[in-house]
Every structure is written in C-alpha cells, then in structure tokens.
C-alpha cells in the first residue's frame, strides 16, 4: 500500500511520518510511504506518473487548492483509493466529505489519541487495499449513496426483498436496512451460492435461516425478518439448505 501525505505544517508532517514508520502497520512488506508533500502541487506532479493507494490530506491547506479540491482530483483519477483527512476542527463538514468524495475517515489533530486513531484508520485502509488486491471485494455487496460506497460482506446479509413499490429493493443486513433501485434478477447475478431466490419477490441468505413454516410458506431469518417462498421453489430450497444448519421446520 503506497501512502501519500500532504500537510503544510512541517512539525505535523514529521509527526505523521514517524507515527506511521514506528507503527505495527509498517511491518507489512507492502506498506510504504511514497510521498511526503507540503503542498498539493507536489501531489499532482507525483500523480502524473505514479499511483498511490492511501492519501493523508490536511483539509486546511494554506494553498490556493484546498484539501477538498485535492481530494476531488485524486478521486477522479482513482475511485478506489482511500482518502483520510486530517483536520484541526472536529466534525467540520464531516458528512460532506464522506458523501461527496467518499473519504475513508476523519482524524482530528488536537485529540490526545491522535496517533492511535491514525494507525487504526490506516489499518482499515490497509484492509481495504488487501481486499481489492485479493479480490475479496467480490464477496461483498455495494450500495452507493452519493459518492460514498457502503461495502457489505455477503455473510452479513439476511435477505433482499422487493418493496411494495416496484423497482425498489430492500436489503436487510446485520447493521442496517438499505433501499435501492434495481431488480432481483440483476442482484442474483452479483451474489454467490449462499443466496437463493425462493420467491418472485425474495432472495435469502441460506446461512441465516432460523425457521421454515410449511403451512404458510414463510421463512423466518435469524434477525426475525419473515420472507415468503413459493411452492415451485420448495424442492430446490430444501436441496440447497446447508447440511450443517439447525433449521426448524413447522
């Protein structure tokens, strides 16, 4: 993972560099600091010929190009790069940065546990980088909100259901409920063998079934959600169930 730092304060620059070099993260062979820049032009020059995976940017750069514009340029060149902002003011435009340029995180300069926060966030960036490298990203489902992409591992998803409103799909997962515009047939293509289309309006994760009710033809998921299955898929459903599971039949 190539890291680029852009910070105009020399002391802060030094601090960031030493924190990263002395952290647990630096043991990995593929982690390196590719550039330490004091202004955005240096980053632009670097990006003309090179690429990087993780950018640490000061929002309040004393330069005609501010952190936001810099980040926008980086984002347009590389949609997958992790962008981490460093700021003096907590919460300043936090949501704007998340949803407009998909910033990975915000780190506040004056907090006592700055170093710790920085390393934690870099670990997340590293994990993301690894996932992209090893194509683990294939085992996730992605929902885009503005520019922010929410990445949800297949393991966490319970079910997809068509909403009462046509074209709107509702997805339930461990940490949230999402709605987006698509159709189940397209979604089915993006999923793997854990998922089963059990009804015209439902796709379920076979590993999260708690109970199957055969009189009402419903499936209760482990989170309590109730899905329907249709008669013609029943045989295939029973066959597809994981053999090790403890599903209650009623």
């Amino acid at each position: 993972m190539k890291i680029v730092i852009c910070e105009d304060d020399a002391r802060q620059r030094k601090f960031l560099q030493s924190t990263i070099v002395h952290s647990s993260l630096f043991q990995y062979d593929d982690v390196e600091i590719a550039l330490i820049a004091s202004n955005p032009s240096e980053v632009f020059t670097y990006l003309k010929e090179h690429r990087a995976n993780c950018f640490l940017l000061d929002i309040e750069l004393q330069h005609e190009i501010n952190g936001l514009e810099l980040a926008n340029t980086i984002r347009s060149k590389d949609p997958l790069a992790s962008i981490i902002f460093i700021t003096t003011y907590a919460d300043k435009l936090k949501l704007t940065f998340t949803y407009k340029i998909a910033a990975l995180d915000f780190i506040v300069k004056n907090e006592p546990n700055l170093a710790e926060n920085l390393i934690d966030t870099l670990h997340i960036a590293y994990q993301k980088h690894q996932n992209i490298q090893t194509e683990q990203i294939d085992k996730t489902f992605q929902v885009k909100i503005g520019e922010h992409v929410q990445i949800i591992p297949f393991t966490d998803i319970y079910c997809f259901a068509t909403s009462l409103n046509a074209h709107k799909i509702e997805m339930k997962e461990k940490n949230g409920v999402y709605e987006f515009f698509s159709n189940l047939t397209d979604i089915e293509q993006q999923l793997d063998e854990r998922f089963f289309r059990c009804h015209r309006g439902y796709i379920i994760n076979l590993q999260h079934i708690r109970k199957i009710d055969q009189t009402y033809r419903t499936i209760t998921m482990t989170n309590g959600s109730i899905c329907h299955y249709s008669f013609r898929y029943k045989k295939a459903l029973i066959k597809a169930l994981p053999s090790t599971s403890t599903i209650i039949f009623e």
Binding site: Q150, N165, K168, N175, G176
Partner: peptide, 25 residues
C-alpha cells in the same frame, strides 16, 4: 416513504453512530 417511488432510506449503525440516509432522485 412507501408512496414515493423515487425516494430511498438507508438506516445503519456504524461505530456507535446511528446513520440515516434519505436519497431523493
């Protein structure tokens, strides 16, 4: 929201934050 075909609502919990995103197309 059910009556609005162009509006979606996401609700999620992330690092002790409760986040709701309303997207209107």
């Amino acid at each position: 929201l059910q009556a609005h075909a162009n509006v979606s609502l996401n609700t999620r919990i992330e690092k002790q934050h409760f986040i709701q995103e309303l997207q209107i197309f």
